[in-house]
């Protein structure tokens, strides 16, 4: 009881707390929840930014699903993007980190080369990708003597663009894992080796589990990178013709001269729902651990 009483806040504490919390909550509401709710409300309207706002209910969602071909392409591309980063680029980054951690010769050089793209913004990666993939002037066609329309063919372009995005993502993931691996106690590996574990076993059974906190960070980074992908496709062809992403469609409809604010908001809400799915899964995991 005495302990509880000691924790009771004085009126000054209450003032300080409410100012501190109040500012945080105020900022949060004004810049996060306010716009979010506004998007949700606007997604039920037809509005061009000038005329009267007209309430249309779920019509925008219906149009989106039934008669807006870029939408499903964008959903598919976002999922592909996530899968590609999560299942190909991230494991490859881990693989590079493990190799580099073994102090092979020139490892500093490899490390630098792999990490270099990370300092570039994705928009810049987009320009580099064009220099490589352009049909008439690209390095790839020039070297291989092919005539493939890498960026214009909608069945190919998303893959080559994901490779370009992964080029950057691999370095990012690698450097995080490398830091994690350096922190793993070498005694653990030694002990495993003495117990007769092969190197593969030692890695998967001993080292990898100790990397758990790093894995969570990498997972979150991967999901964020996949959902916010925008600049690279926008730099290449404004995210059209096979390179549609939800983020691009939102911009295309709202920001441009088009000003289909209601319709664009509906796409934004879809993106919000998808993000929420990941956020909820992540947070429940996190809280379960803490308990």
């Amino acid at each position: 009881m005495t302990r509880l009483r000691a924790r009771r806040h004085s009126s000054r504490d209450v003032v300080v707390l409410s100012i501190g919390l109040g500012v945080a909550i105020g900022v949060n509401v004004a810049f996060i929840w306010g716009p979010t709710l506004a998007s949700i409300v606007l997604s039920g309207t037809d509005w061009n930014g000038i005329s009267e706002i007209r309430w249309v209910g779920v019509e925008n969602y219906h149009d989106l699903a039934t008669s807006y071909p870029p939408f499903w392409t964008a959903v598919r591309n976002n999922v592909l993007w996530l899968a590609f980063l999560g299942l190909v680029a991230t494991p490859f980054g881990l693989f590079c980190a493990v190799l580099l951690d073994r102090r092979i010769r020139f490892s500093r050089l490899y490390q630098g080369a792999l990490y270099l793209p990370v300092v570039l913004s994705l928009a810049v990666v987009g320009f580099i990708a064009q220099l490589v993939y352009s049909q008439d002037y690209g390095v790839l066609n020039a070297v291989t003597g092919r005539e493939t329309d890498w960026l214009g063919d909608p069945s190919v372009n998303i893959w080559v663009v994901m490779v370009a995005a992964a080029w950057r993502h691999v370095g990012y993931v690698m450097i995080i894992y490398l830091a994690g691996l350096k922190a793993v106690d070498p005694a653990l590996k030694e002990a495993a080796a003495i117990d007769g574990a092969s190197e593969t076993q030692a890695f998967f059974r001993v080292v990898f589990p100790t990397l758990r906190p790093i894995n969570v960070i990498v997972l979150v980074i991967t999901v964020i990178e996949a959902l916010r992908a925008f600049d690279i496709v926008y730099a290449i062809n404004k995210g059209r013709n096979g390179l549609e992403l939800l983020s691009v469609l939102v911009t295309e409809n709202i920001v441009g001269e088009a000003s289909r604010i209601g319709f664009g908001s509906a796409i934004a809400v879809v993106l919000l729902v998808i993000s929420m799915g990941f956020i909820i899964v992540y947070l429940t995991q996190l809280f379960r651990e803490e308990r």
């Binding site: 993939y133 352009s134 049909q135 008439d136 002037y137 005539e147 329309d149 890498w150 960026l151 214009g152 063919d153 909608p154 372009n157 062809n237 013709n241």
Partner: peptide, 10 residues
């Protein structure tokens, strides 16, 4: 051919 991957400048 391949117009979707080419700019008008090219």
């Amino acid at each position: 051919p391949g117009a979707n991957g080419r700019t008008w400048q090219e």
